[in-house]
Design a protein around this nucleic acid. Sequence first.
RNA 1: GCCCCCGUAGCUCAGUGGAUAGAGCAUCCCCCUCCUAAGGGGAGGGUCACACGUUCGAUUCGUGUCGGGGGCGCCA
Length: 622
Amino acid sequence: MRTRRPGQARQDPTGAGQLLYNSKVDAPSRIMPPSYIDPKQHLTGLLRQALAQVAPQADLSVELERPKQASHGDWASNLAMQLARGLKRNPRQVAADLVAALPVSEWVARVEIAGPGFINFHLKPALWQRLPAHILSLGAEYGRVDLGGGERIQVEYVSANPTGPLHVGHGRGAAYGASLANVLTYAGYDVTREYYVNDAGRQMDILAVSTWLRYLELTGETVPFPPNAYQGGYVRTMAASIHALHGDRYRRSRAEVLNGVPPIPGAEDYAQRPDAKDAAEAALDALIAAAKRLLGQDYDYFHGYALEEQLGDCRNDLTEFGVTFDHWFSERSLHEAGLIDRAVELLRHKGHIYEQDGALWFRSSAFGDEKDRVVRRENGQYTYFAADIAYHINKFERGFARVIDVWGADHHGYVPRVKGALAAAGYDPERLTVDLVQFAVLYRNGQKVSMSTRAGEYVTLRELRQEVGNDACRFFYVLRKSDQHLDFDLDLAKSQSTDNPVYYIQYAHARISSVLAAWGGMEGDLLDADASLLTHPDEMALLKRLAEFPETIASAAREHAPHLVAYYLKDLAAALHGVYTTCQFLVEDEALRLARLQMIAATRRVLRTGLGLLGVSAPDKM
RNA sequence: GCCCCCGUAGCUCAGUGGAUAGAGCAUCCCCCUCCUAAGGGGAGGGUCACACGUUCGAUUCGUGUCGGGGGCGCCA
């Protein structure tokens, strides 16, 4: 990723030869690329000094913003207006005092007082012109900010039940979580990516039984297949594999299986009669019990086989999607290690657990939840919530300063109780942030693609990826704020046209690569280019856009908003396409040629870095 | 009933309390003898749902109303 390999001496245009690399002779400033100063930091420093003179007692943080309008300068401050109230003076007069107290700076072209009291800074072009060399020397490090200070933070995302293929809803959580984790890492956090595997619950039992029932069909036993069991074709596939491996070894007669099992409702009843749903659940539970009884140890084989198969499929799917994890955390391990007992015991010890109707309840209403919640059912089984309490306590016991859960928005009612449990256990619930990701709705030919999870009528993530490609998928998923519904336009995502923002950005990258290839030189040779030749308005616009990258990263990390990176890249690509049409790069004049190539090489670097954070490839040819 | 999200151009959406509210698409008009036209330039298009409040200043914050979407189990 580095643009200059260590030890590789670059061409020396001055003819001074090795002296450039002799630190005893040369001052560091001659070796290093021209220094670049972050303009916002610089101006903030100037304003702070002015503030200390004008109003030493004022307790104000100095804020700077990029004005929307170019005539308002490069950066603007509202400091005078904020100050005016406390001083009971005219804001424009305060602004004048501040400007008079500003230290002299070699980077400031002029300062103006405008409107109700804004202080507008116009910077010298030289500042922006130094940016490309700065970017090239930093390589992939340009844009990295130290917001996190190395703080340990965990991001848990996807965490779908391994009971079937991931669908397009999971895809959004995957893309969002992965991009967020990338951004946070880039913003200086020590990030751990985790997937919570629900390998202990009833859903897994249903999958195991579904597989066994399909297996029985292959052995010739026709046991009715419950409408609320897993209908997908992948269940038949697993059953066929098991049958191929073990023949009729796990066959039990229809009579044995159905002994003691209440009538299983048909699919029509299930869909139409409300009471059939309860009957179906009861029948399914009875079938699970029958399977465990009849198969004994072999039940674990079915359970384990289905789990490994589905989890493996899920992992492959995500890996192909560029979504990876540091830990796959097993819910079952919580049970086996006794952590759930311990967590409930901890809450009980602190007086937040009571018994009623044979069940154990957590007094979550005392912690902001609307009602109390069961942690252990009458039948002695822990609820999913109990496991989640133990899991979240475990997260903090592992030393994470902060924890982010990425959940589907349908779980929003779950947030208060988990936070409540953490508070009850003695942890500051503010250390947990739950990012709720809204649903994605697919559109094809302007029509909503209908999906129902039941009966396997849904579009899988794999199908979506195959249809529109990984790059467009990743990009479209994070194009909207996560807490907003996403209309995923399949036709747009697939179109290789100007409408498609993914191609728009990738095309900017490919165009630069193409020009640099035509030039034929090494990126490292561009470090010494005379960037003061970059004076065209479109060039300046591009340079200023490049300068915004680090702050974009900081905002995206602070607000958990990877879509800001996507929008930034669109703007950056637009600036590049603008320069591309107005300014020829491979011009006769060598100095100008190198300066422009330096600029676009730096642009390519930022495009590549930004796309990388979103998990989108940066092709050299399209 | 309670809770969450949303309401910004014809459509899809950006917009950390600031100045004349932006982008893409769609519509209309231009630009390839030229490093990739998967590109660029221009025009039209707005009561930032509505009301009140906080503020020097509100699309942004608060309350309410209206409208749209979603969620509320001893399921996971």
